[in-house]
Computed example of a mutant assay.
Amino acid sequence: MNELYSKPLVIIGAGGHATVLAEVLQQQPVIAIVSPEKPEALVFEGIKHIQNDDDLVNMWPPEDVLLVNGIGQLPNKHVRRKVAEFYQDLGYQFATVVSPAALVSNSVVLGSGAQVLCGAIIHGETKIGAHSIINTGAIVEHHCQVAEHCHIAPSSTLCGGVSVAKNSHIGASATILPLVSIGEECMVGAGAVVTQNLVERHRVYGPISTIKTERL
C-alpha cells in the first residue's frame, strides 16, 4: 500500500511481528507504539513510546487514529485477537496493511486489520478476513476463503479454492491442496501437506506419507 493512510497510525506491541510491520510502514504516518517496555529495534527510533492502553485512549480518541495490531499470532494463543476485540469495543478501527513487496490481485477482498507481508502472493477472487495475517512469502491461490483471525505462516501455500475457518493457523511451509476446507481453531503443523478436509479444533502434522491428526 503506497498511498498514505487517512489517519495517523499507532502500533500495538513491540516484538518481532511489530518490528516487521514498522519496517513495512516506514513511509507511513506512524506516530506512536504501545509497549510496556521501551522498544529496542532501530526501526522504532523517533516514534513516540506509550507504555499502556490507558495512555493511548487518553491521548487519541478513536476518530483520530488507526491502530496496527503488532501482536504476533501463535497456534492456540488468543492474545492478538483479544487485543483487537478490546480496542474495537472502545470504537477504534484497525488499518489494513499490505507490504509494497507483496503481490495482491485487484479482485482480492481484504478485511479490516488484515496484514499481507513481504513476498506474499494472493491471487484473484480470494477473500481474507479481518485481522488475519498472510505472512512472508505465503501463497494464497485463486478463489480461497480465509476467515478472520487466521495466520497463514511464512512460505505456506493454499492451493485454489481452499477455505480456512476463523482462528486457524497454517504453519510455515505447509501446503493445503485444492478445495480442502480447514475448520475453526485448527492447527496445521509446519511442512504438513493436507489432502482432505479438517474438522474444527484438530491438528495435523508431518509429511504427506506419515501425516497425523489429533483433536486439540
Rank of each mutant, 00 (worst) to 15 (best):
E3G: 05
L9A: 05
I11E: 05
A14C: 14
A14M: 07
V20R: 03
V20S: 08
L21K: 00
L21F: 00
A22L: 13
E23K: 15
Q27G: 11
I33H: 06
E37W: 06
F44D: 12
F44I: 06
N58V: 03
E63W: 07
D64C: 01
V65K: 02
L66V: 04
L67W: 01
L74Q: 13
K77Y: 00
R81Q: 11
V83P: 04
E85R: 11
Y87K: 09
Q88W: 04
D89Q: 15
Y92S: 05
V98N: 03
A101N: 14
L103C: 10
V104M: 09
S107Y: 07
V108A: 01
V109G: 07
G113N: 02
Q115M: 13
I121F: 02
I121V: 15
G124L: 10
I128R: 07
V140R: 00
E141N: 14
C144L: 10
E148S: 15
I152T: 08
I152N: 02
P154S: 08
T157V: 15
L158P: 02
C159I: 09
G161W: 10
S163N: 01
S163I: 06
N167M: 03
A174G: 00
I176Y: 04
I176K: 02
L177V: 10
P178K: 09
C186M: 03
V199H: 07
G206C: 06
P207S: 09
I208H: 13
I208M: 15
S209F: 07
